[in-house]
């Protein structure tokens, strides 16, 4: 409205003849922004934790179930389709190599371990980050830009408690369940190709599947999927709450939400894989690590 503008640091144009200075300044600005963003996210997660510890209350419990239905039940088909095809492709690609060295019978082991420890949790998480995370960011972002989140605050309803906690809880509870579905269909897909197409016999397939998969592998898969559920829910809600103005802001928040949670899922997966392999070595020093 009025022009009492004070130039902000990022508006002061840097002289082009000093590219090094410009680069350092940009790096500095980027670093400050990143640290601020991480701090802001930390504060956000702290208040989520606060409300989870204080007990979400009966209404939040009901909202959590609604979210679980919304994200969980409706994601089953897409998660199963992805899982099934990946299991099948895995069998198609590994069979020739195993066949060549005469161990095609062991196909069951490699398929089940790959699906349960890696592919199932990762693919389910990525599908959910797109389908569920995107939808949550869009919904909360729209609520933010249309001032519904402000309205909650004026009615003394904490937005983190009423909106974020049920969504994150639903993600944490449903991701492992959906991962289990995806795993099961993935193994069946691999089995169908190995036994139905490539002619591996039924008994050895399941025998090696069972030998190859111990409780540890299954637990690794489940713990991973719980961690991915936290990542998906937390990033999606955070990006929705920090959404910029207008329809454009909502669109950008959704893209950022997906890209960020995708990257963090991969990083968390890597860290957990290293950690679990180390734990495995400590627990059973004489057994070979599996993957």
């Amino acid at each position: 409205m009025h022009d009492k503008r004070i130039p902000m640091p990022d508006e002061i144009t840097l002289r082009p003849e000093r590219p090094l200075l410009a680069a350092v300044t940009n790096l500095g600005a980027w670093t400050t922004e990143s640290i601020q963003a991480v701090g802001d996210f930390g504060v956000f997660m702290f208040s989520v934790l606060h409300w989870i510890i204080r007990g979400p209350g009966r209404r939040s419990a009901r909202d959590t179930f609604a979210q679980m239905y919304e994200m969980g039940t409706r994601s089953i088909p897409v998660v199963m389709i992805t899982g099934g095809f990946i299991g099948a492709v895995l069998a198609i690609e590994t069979y020739p190599q195993f066949h060549q060295i005469g161990i095609a019978n062991r196909l069951g082991g490699v398929i089940v371990v790959s699906v349960v420890k890696q592919l199932g949790p990762i693919l389910t998480a990525v599908m959910l980050a797109g389908r569920v995370g995107g939808a949550m960011t869009a919904e909360l972002g729209t609520m933010k830009v249309t001032e519904q989140i402000d309205a909650l605050r004026t009615m003394a309803a904490d937005p983190v408690r009423t909106l974020v906690v049920p969504r994150i809880l639903a993600c944490v509870l449903m991701t492992p369940v959906l991962t289990t579905y995806s795993d099961a269909v993935g193994i069946l897909g691999g089995w169908a190709v190995a036994v139905g197409v490539e002619g591996v016999r039924n008994y050895p397939f399941w025998h090696y599947a069972q030998v190859g998969t111990d409780l540890y592998a299954i637990n690794v898969g489940l713990i991973k999927s719980i961690a991915f559920g936290i990542v998906i829910g937390a990033i999606a809600c955070y990006k929705g709450f920090r959404c910029g103005a207008g329809a454009q802001g909502v669109g950008r928040a959704c893209t950022e939400s997906f890209v960020t949670s995708f990257c963090i899922i991969l990083v968390v997966n890597f860290i957990l894989a290293v950690a679990f392999n180390n734990i495995f070595v400590i627990l059973w020093p004489n057994r070979p690590g599996l993957l």
Partner: peptide
């Protein structure tokens, strides 16, 4: 609120 801010 200016635009109502009803919960959709």
């Amino acid at each position: 609120f200016q635009l109502g801010a009803l919960f959709d």
